[in-house]
Every structure is written in C-alpha cells, then in structure tokens.
C-alpha cells in the first residue's frame, strides 16, 4: 500500500522518459515561400549556454503544432498574418503626425528596422530603460508625432509590430543578457520560475518540465517567443508575446501582470533569451 517517495520517484521518472519519446516535437523544416524568394528559418537550435544544464535543444513553437497549422506558415500567401503586415506598411507611410509626420519621413523604408525585433527587449543606451518594439513605437508616436499612445493591444500597434517584426524574419534571436541587461534578465528569470496563482504553476512547470506532453488537448511547447507576434487562428488576430503571457498566467488562476509592466518586460527579455539562436519568424501562425 505505501509507496515511499523514492520508489515513487523512479516510477514517475520511467513514465516521464517513456512519455517524452511519444510526444516529441515533430521533425520538420520551415522554408517559407515569400515574394522575395524562399526564406530558410532556423526552428531547432542548440540551447544557449546558460540553459545547457536544463535542455540540449531549443525548438520553435512551430514544431508542436498540427500539420495544417505548420503548413500555413510555409507560404506568405497562406499566412493570414500577412494582412496585418500590409496594413502596417500603409500605416508606416501615412502622414498621421500632428505636423504631418510619417514613420517613413524619418526612417525611410521599413527595412531600416531590420534587426530590431531580433535584439529586443534591450536596454536603451541613452535612457537605461528596457525597451520592446512596442515601447519604441509608442515613443515615436507620442514624443515625435504628437499623438496619443497606441497602447499595447490596439490594432495600430499590432499592425506596426507585425510589419517591424517581418523585417527581422530569418535573423537569429540575439538579445543581450549581460551588462546593462543583466538585472532585468535576472528579474525575468525569477518570474519564470515563480509558481503563481492558486494552481501554483510557473512558466517552467509547463514549458520546461512538461514540454512535449499534453495538458488536455494542448501539446506543450517550450513557450518560445521567436515566433511572435503570432497570428492566432482561435482569435483571428495578432497576439503579442506579453498578451500570450497574460493568458498563460491567467490559466494558473493568478492575478496577471499587465502588458508593458516592468514584470512582463523583464519576463519577455528572459524568455526571448531562452530562444537566442532560433530565427525570428516575423509573423507566425498558431492555433
């Protein structure tokens, strides 16, 4: 009748190992048909140095999705997220500022934003603040164009985020975790391992300890953000990384943090760094 803690541990370990094989991320490669030609995306990579003791290999969330969902990302004509990129381009060129300014007026083409998505969140050298793509956009919108902030979940912000992220498609995620970023990164790491809410679950509980397994019908990925923003079929819309965090934390029966809070920005930096080496996917497709 009585099972000691140790016999139990060996039992579950056996189960865990057996289970891991059955539900591995699918082996597949992602080559996207785009207007400008084909784009090879790195969706599997060796884990960054600081994770080496925890996991060997990092996988984009793309590997955990069904065949049909993965296929939608192979061709920009099929990817419903591209509509938002197009809208973002219109917005980029529009003279929306109070003095008739446009993004294009200061930055020329959107390709001037190449690399930004791959290296944010990052610490701004001038202000010392941790900045996401959204923070940079809002700084221009308010300080330089004289407009009300777009906020994080509005449609203009998402269109712009989609456009800007696309400029880094195919570049490896490469966020800095040392120097001025170190203290933000440490804070994000602490949040990642904190067991929040009445269900007492951390990000690691699902995306580190149980990736590859099924929680009800959901195949748990490593919770990487290299694919963000994502086009989510369920919402028929664009979802940013921190919006995803809101959903995940809510699912632990916790009081969530808000997008653009110091907590979620630090967490985004930490989670992004776990994906250093994976390609930015521009706008990915998830169910």
């Amino acid at each position: 009748m009585h099972r000691t803690a140790t016999t139990w541990a060996t039992l579950t370990l056996g189960l865990a190992l057996a289970g891991a094989v059955a539900a591995d991320p699918v082996e597949d490669t992602l080559v996207v048909e785009a207007e400008e030609g084909t784009v090879d995306l790195v969706t599997t990579a060796p884990a960054p140095e600081f994770l080496k003791d925890t996991v060997d290999t990092i996988y984009s969330g793309w590997h955990y999705r069904e065949d049909e969902t993965r296929d939608l990302q192979r061709d920009d004509f099929d990817n419903p997220g591209m509509v938002f990129v197009d809208r973002g381009l219109d917005l980029w060129n529009a003279t929306i500022g109070t003095d008739g300014q446009s993004c294009a007026g200061c930055h020329e083409g959107p390709e001037s934003m190449a690399g930004l998505r791959a290296t944010t969140p990052r610490v701004d050298a001038k202000t010392g603040a941790l900045m996401t793509v959204e923070n940079y956009v809002d700084a221009c919108v308010t300080d330089r164009m004289g407009l009300e902030a777009w906020g994080w979940t509005g449609s203009q912000m998402k269109d712009m985020l989609a456009l800007i992220s696309m400029q880094s498609r195919g570049m490896p995620v490469n966020v800095a975790i040392d120097g001025a970023a170190a203290s933000f990164w440490e804070k994000g790491k602490e949040l990642y391992y904190t067991r929040f809410g009445q269900l007492e679950m951390s990000c690691a509980s699902c995306h580190e300890d149980n990736q590859g397994r099924y929680i009800r019908a959901d195949h748990l990925s490593q919770g990487q953000v290299n694919g963000f923003p994502v086009y989510r079929l369920k919402d028929a819309g664009i979802l940013s990384a921190q919006q995803r965090f809101v959903g995940c934390v809510r699912d632990t029966r916790a009081e969530t943090f808000k997008p653009n809070s110091d907590e979620f920005k630090a967490l985004e930096l930490y989670v992004a760094s776990r994906g250093n080496g994976l390609s930015v996917e521009g706008v990915s497709v998830r169910h």
Binding site: T194, R195, F196, G197, Q198, E200, V246, V249, R250, D251, T252, R253, A254, E255, T256
Partner: peptide, 9 residues
Amino acid sequence: IRPGGGYTG
C-alpha cells in the same frame, strides 16, 4: 503568490 479569482486574471 498572486492568487486570482478563478480564471479571471
């Protein structure tokens, strides 16, 4: 830590 009211967030 930061319990919520059910799944309301």
